[in-house]
Measured scan of single mutants.
Amino acid sequence: GAYRMKIYDRDELRGQMSELTDDCISVQDRFHLTEIHSLNVLEGSWILYEMPNYRGRQYLLRPGEYRRFLDWGAPNAKVGSLRRVMD
């Protein structure tokens, strides 16, 4: 299947937008971000990790809009890595 997600540095799907279609071992290295404040999962399911290298707390992201970090259940906006959930 296809995988696509848009990430934003501000809440409510605002601010600088970056797009992912594959795994990202370090959000900071690739996008120069340490925080993601909202996101829109367009295709596929993903796991968001608090730390790089797929470590730390993890949150399942199904397709849909997440307008603030509380929407995916996190206590803050800190994001380290993102990985696709393969079928």
Rank of each mutant, 00 (worst) to 15 (best):
Gly1Asp: 08
Gly1Pro: 04
Gly1Ala: 13
Gly1Leu: 11
Ala2His: 11
Ala2Gln: 09
Tyr3Glu: 15
Tyr3Thr: 15
Tyr3Gln: 15
Tyr3Arg: 12
Arg4Asn: 15
Arg4Ser: 08
Met5Asn: 03
Met5Ile: 14
Met5Lys: 00
Lys6Asp: 06
Lys6Ser: 15
Ile7Leu: 13
Ile7Ala: 14
Tyr8Thr: 05
Asp9Ile: 14
Asp9His: 08
Asp9Lys: 15
Asp9Asn: 07
Arg10Ala: 08
Arg10Asp: 15
Arg10Lys: 15
Asp11Ser: 09
Asp11His: 03
Glu12Pro: 07
Glu12Ile: 15
Leu13Pro: 03
Leu13Trp: 09
Leu13Phe: 12
Leu13Thr: 15
Arg14Tyr: 10
Arg14Leu: 09
Arg14Gln: 09
Gly15Pro: 02
Gly15Ala: 10
Gly15Thr: 08
Gln16Ala: 06
Met17Gln: 06
Met17Leu: 12
Met17Asn: 03
Ser18Pro: 14
Ser18Phe: 09
Ser18Cys: 12
Ser18Tyr: 12
Ser18Arg: 10
Ser18Glu: 08
Glu19Val: 04
Glu19His: 15
Leu20Lys: 00
Thr21Pro: 14
Thr21Asn: 09
Asp22Pro: 01
Asp23Glu: 12
Asp23Thr: 03
Asp23Asn: 06
Asp23Ala: 05
Cys24Thr: 10
Cys24Ala: 15
Cys24Ile: 15
Cys24Val: 06
Cys24Lys: 00
Ile25Phe: 09
Ile25Glu: 09
Ile25Tyr: 11
Ser26Ile: 11
Ser26Met: 13
Ser26Ala: 10
Val27Asp: 01
Gln28Phe: 08
Gln28Gly: 11
Gln28Glu: 10
Gln28Leu: 06
Asp29Glu: 11
Asp29Trp: 08
Arg30Trp: 04
Phe31Lys: 15
Phe31Val: 14
His32Thr: 10
His32Arg: 09
His32Gln: 07
Leu33Ile: 06
Leu33Lys: 14
Leu33Phe: 08
Leu33Trp: 08
Thr34Cys: 14
Thr34His: 06
Thr34Glu: 11
Ile36Trp: 15
Ile36Met: 13
Ile36Leu: 05
Ile36Val: 07
Ile36Tyr: 04
Ile36Pro: 03
His37Gln: 06
His37Lys: 10
His37Tyr: 09
His37Ile: 13
Ser38Ala: 11
Ser38Lys: 02
Ser38Pro: 02
Leu39Gly: 02
Leu39Val: 06
Leu39Met: 05
Val41Ser: 02
Val41Ala: 07
Leu42Asp: 11
Leu42Gly: 15
Leu42Met: 14
Leu42Lys: 14
Glu43Asn: 10
Glu43Phe: 08
Glu43Cys: 10
Glu43Trp: 05
Gly44Glu: 02
Gly44Cys: 02
Gly44Arg: 02
Ser45Thr: 06
Ser45Glu: 11
Trp46Val: 01
Trp46Met: 01
Trp46Gln: 00
Ile47Met: 05
Ile47Leu: 07
Ile47Thr: 04
Leu48Cys: 05
Leu48Met: 13
Tyr49Gln: 00
Tyr49Ile: 00
Glu50Cys: 03
Glu50Asn: 04
Glu50Pro: 02
Glu50Lys: 02
Glu50Gly: 03
Met51Pro: 01
Pro52Asp: 11
Pro52Ser: 10
Pro52Phe: 03
Pro52Tyr: 00
Asn53Val: 02
Asn53Leu: 06
Tyr54Cys: 12
Arg55Ile: 04
Arg55Asn: 06
Arg55Pro: 01
Gly56Glu: 00
Arg57Met: 04
Arg57Phe: 04
Gln58Gly: 05
Gln58Ser: 08
Tyr59Trp: 07
Tyr59Met: 14
Tyr59Lys: 08
Tyr59Asn: 02
Leu60Arg: 12
Leu60His: 15
Leu61Val: 11
Leu61Cys: 05
Leu61Pro: 00
Leu61Gly: 03
Arg62Ala: 07
Arg62Asp: 06
Pro63Lys: 09
Pro63Tyr: 03
Pro63Met: 08
Pro63Val: 06
Pro63Trp: 02
Gly64Trp: 01
Gly64Phe: 02
Gly64Glu: 04
Gly64Arg: 04
Gly64Gln: 04
Glu65Thr: 06
Glu65Met: 13
Glu65Ala: 12
Glu65Gly: 03
Tyr66Val: 00
Arg67Ser: 08
Arg67Gln: 09
Arg67Val: 07
Arg68Pro: 01
Arg68Gln: 10
Phe69His: 07
Phe69Lys: 13
Phe69Ile: 15
Leu70Tyr: 04
Leu70Pro: 13
Asp71Gly: 10
Asp71Met: 12
Asp71Phe: 11
Asp71Cys: 10
Trp72Gly: 02
Trp72Asp: 00
Ala74Leu: 09
Ala74Asn: 02
Ala74Phe: 15
Pro75Gln: 09
Pro75Tyr: 02
Pro75Asp: 04
Asn76Ala: 12
Asn76Lys: 11
Asn76Val: 10
Ala77Asp: 08
Ala77Phe: 15
Ala77Ile: 05
Ala77Leu: 13
Lys78His: 04
Gly80Val: 01
Gly80Trp: 01
Ser81Tyr: 00
Ser81Lys: 00
Ser81Asn: 00
Leu82Cys: 05
Leu82Arg: 00
Arg83Ala: 07
Arg83Asp: 00
Arg84Tyr: 15
Arg84His: 15
Arg84Met: 12
Arg84Asn: 00
Arg84Cys: 13
Arg84Ser: 07
Val85Ile: 06
Val85Leu: 06
Met86Gln: 14
Met86Ile: 15
Met86Ser: 14
Asp87Cys: 04
Asp87Phe: 15
Asp87Thr: 11
Asp87His: 08
Asp87Ala: 05
